[in-house]
């Protein structure tokens, strides 16, 4: 039978990469639920990437939706050797840059958006960390916003999301040496901005 094939396939496959291949193949074949699973699997990663880039939660949600709609329309263009996450981030990057251009300015930081984020720390952070985190998160957001786009994207993907240089090069189209230089400078700028909050009290 056709319908439970997804589950049969899961019983046979051994690792995430194969699972991902099965989902992609099914999505390319027009299986919307397979695409739904891809969305469920990756939308938070994409959202966090866009959030770090834009600093605005509501806009990041909107742009994340656009990213996945774009992915849905172009799923046939996904080559076998392109990793799904890298491919999605590439689309997200274009969506974000386009939004920068159409708005004509960097998105202004809005404190309300930070407040509206789900920062209920009960299961995320220990109380001692929670105390500072809200204020600090706003500082980080602000510091990220002050980086230029090239530095911000490499800092986000490497420092915050732990992708490899190779993956980031695929997403941004920049050479690895440039990425390393940008990251180094971004780190220095971020450190300078956040230093007052990082000093160890003696």
């Amino acid at each position: 039978m056709d319908i439970p094939m997804l589950f049969h396939a899961q019983a046979e496959i051994k690792n995430t990469a194969e699972y991902s291949d099965v989902l992609i193949a099914r999505a390319q074949n027009g299986d919307r639920e397979a695409f739904g699973l891809i969305f469920e699997h990756h939308h938070r990663f994409v959202f966090k990437f866009i959030y770090a880039m834009t600093g605005e939660a509501a806009a990041a949600e909107e742009l994340t939706q656009e990213t996945f709609l774009g992915a849905y329309k172009n799923i046939h263009a996904l080559r076998g050797d392109a990793r799904l996450k890298t491919w999605l981030c590439g689309i997200a990057k274009n969506v974000v840059y386009k939004s920068f251009r159409t708005r004509g300015k960097d998105l202004a930081q809005n404190d309300d958006d930070i407040e509206s984020l789900d920062v209920s720390g009960d299961e995320k952070t220990a109380p001692d960390r929670e105390f500072l985190s809200k204020e600090l998160n706003q500082k980080i957001s602000k510091a990220l916003e002050n980086l230029d786009a090239d530095k911000r994207i490499v800092f986000t993907l490497k420092e915050l999301q732990h992708l490899s240089y190779k993956e980031i090069a695929e997403i941004t189209g920049h050479s690895i040496p440039k990425l390393k230089t940008d990251l180094h400078r971004a780190k220095i700028e971020m450190r300078a901005a956040l230093r007052p909050y990082l000093e160890v009290k003696k």
């Binding site: 770090a52 709609l69 600090l136 980080i140």
Partner: peptide, 21 residues
């Protein structure tokens, strides 16, 4: 650790999913 917390806190609301579908 700070960056890790920052990324943790950045959670999308339920709107993202419902609007997307």
């Amino acid at each position: 650790a700070l960056f890790a917390d920052f990324m943790f806190a950045a959670e999308p609301s339920e709107n993202l999913r419902t609007n997307f579908y």
